[in-house]
Write a protein that binds this DNA or RNA. Sequence first.
DNA 1: CTGTTAGCGCATTCAT
DNA 2: ATGAATGCGCTAACAG
Lengths: 346, 346
Amino acid sequence: MTVTLADVAARAQVSPATVSRVLNGNYPVAASTRERVLRAVDELDYVLNGPASALAAATSDLVGILVNDIADPFFGIMASAIQSEIGGPGGRAGGERLAVVCNTGGSPERELTYLTLLQRQRAAAVILTGGAVEDAVHVAAVDTKLRKLADAGTRVVLCGRPPSPDAIALTFDNRGGGRQLTEHLIGLGHRRLGYIAGPEERTTTRHRLEGHRDALAAHGIEDDPKRTVWGRYDRRAGYDATLELLRRDPSLTAVVAANDTVALGACAALREAGLRIPDDVSVAGFDDLPFSIDAVPALTTVHLPLSDAGARAGRIAMGREEPPPGGIATVCGELMVRGSTGAPRE
Amino acid sequence: MTVTLADVAARAQVSPATVSRVLNGNYPVAASTRERVLRAVDELDYVLNGPASALAAATSDLVGILVNDIADPFFGIMASAIQSEIGGPGGRAGGERLAVVCNTGGSPERELTYLTLLQRQRAAAVILTGGAVEDAVHVAAVDTKLRKLADAGTRVVLCGRPPSPDAIALTFDNRGGGRQLTEHLIGLGHRRLGYIAGPEERTTTRHRLEGHRDALAAHGIEDDPKRTVWGRYDRRAGYDATLELLRRDPSLTAVVAANDTVALGACAALREAGLRIPDDVSVAGFDDLPFSIDAVPALTTVHLPLSDAGARAGRIAMGREEPPPGGIATVCGELMVRGSTGAPRE
DNA sequence: CTGTTAGCGCATTCAT
DNA sequence: ATGAATGCGCTAACAG
């Protein structure tokens, strides 16, 4: 039924080994023979059997990309950049690699499951993006998994995720970015700042919040726990949290959100409460996703070079770029001051 | 070095076949034996070899999801929904399936390449999302590919994509949605409407535009070609196109965009041109992506049930839901009237 | 319910 | 530069 390498060999009147060699292009074959084989491949419409190939070679052309939320452009942008560097020549089987993005939905179990699945597939490389869950048991489980993958020859790269032994890491300076942002607001004169944090157990959440607190502390501003609210990384969370912050302290003059999406929800809540941005309340986000510049007013935020970082992670995973010294590099964000922040009222 | 099924069998003092059976859970095995095997698996930290398994079974647990732009939430939302229905029990190898999303970037070649790669991997199912490129040669090539995949036992489902023989299709009623939207504007009194279309060669672009023109024709409004501009499906295209439309006809009272992202760019351009929305110019989008409600004013658009459609496509691909009669179902959008549209000025 | 026997399709030695 | 032979690790009949 399905045409195999042997069929091609027969048709081209060569041995299966020769066909394999021209297909993989990693061994000298006479030009005339090659051409004959290629023609047979074409005529028979032959398609390599991936599993068989992977089994025999003990490695595959799959490259796994793990993301926390595929519907969030934060991950989409990184995944897209990674993938653009994955393709091209260099792999086996004609140089085509299958970049597969796996959506963990932020669930530790799913993360582990996908890692196992990729291990099962003998993936050529695995790239984990975004913040990690901090639960000690889970961290240990992931580290163990990553070590096994690495031992089995899978290249493991972290992008926008805190370092782990046995993996090359490109981490984002979330703490520094958070600090810059809050210092900007303090510099504007704000003293009563609300903070909308992300999910409590994630590293990204903690680091950004720490940066915020660093800035407060550096300027002798008390960090009133009432001024921090936790939620998910979505619009609704920002909306609800803002209402809650306003309830707890109507005299707030600024709201700092864990990311841009949350900030958008915050803006909506403020607007509905009849407050003007930034005249009554300033708002700031984080990430600088494409839509942030279109918010009204445009969102002050911290720009993260998601695309560049993703591309670099992709190249490292493909062995086309040297890993950073020590296996860890910190990628810094850049404060983007726009219309959503201004001096506090009165 | 790496532990195999045979090792597990030896340790559990059973035959390899038995181990395979408990792992796949598709054959009766005595509870006591099962437990012994599972314990051995655990102790040895055994991981199934995916390629070997796929080779022997002639099918894999891979499910491919093709998207045009992974950084666009339109696709992210569908992919996420599809994936949520892919997992769970029912597959081989412990019921875990690997949902892999492949980013074609809108390129016909990449689309074909990914389909070949998926075919190579003997994917269990393939789901293609979003609009297709209309070039006859490419359409034929894709159809051929889909037929081969189907013949090889891969389930093929289209989601938000026009029908094709040999595939089950859930298509969006882009034409109807486009018509509704423009009729809404005409009903408001608009007569000079600009239209920002997407990439020229895509079905989505064409259908939405046709709907727009249907509405114009139905109301006896001349369809001046000067009032249509083409561009990509991104913010920048909307921005540029709006400037161009304004240049060609400053008396426009409404701008209809091919999708929400484009509409956002249009809003930015209008705002910078000193025009108020909707007082001076009304704006409408399409898709109703999450950020659309946060635009200022909130965007009038056509809501597409991306999540529901994706979930349904996922279930059909997994054989857990009956395909629609005739293999084709049309999914309709719903007009969402919000603040960005109003009566024309004067 | 469990063991035995054959391949699945390809990459890779080792020869020639 | 090419062919022959071997085995990758697993599943699926087929027996028992």
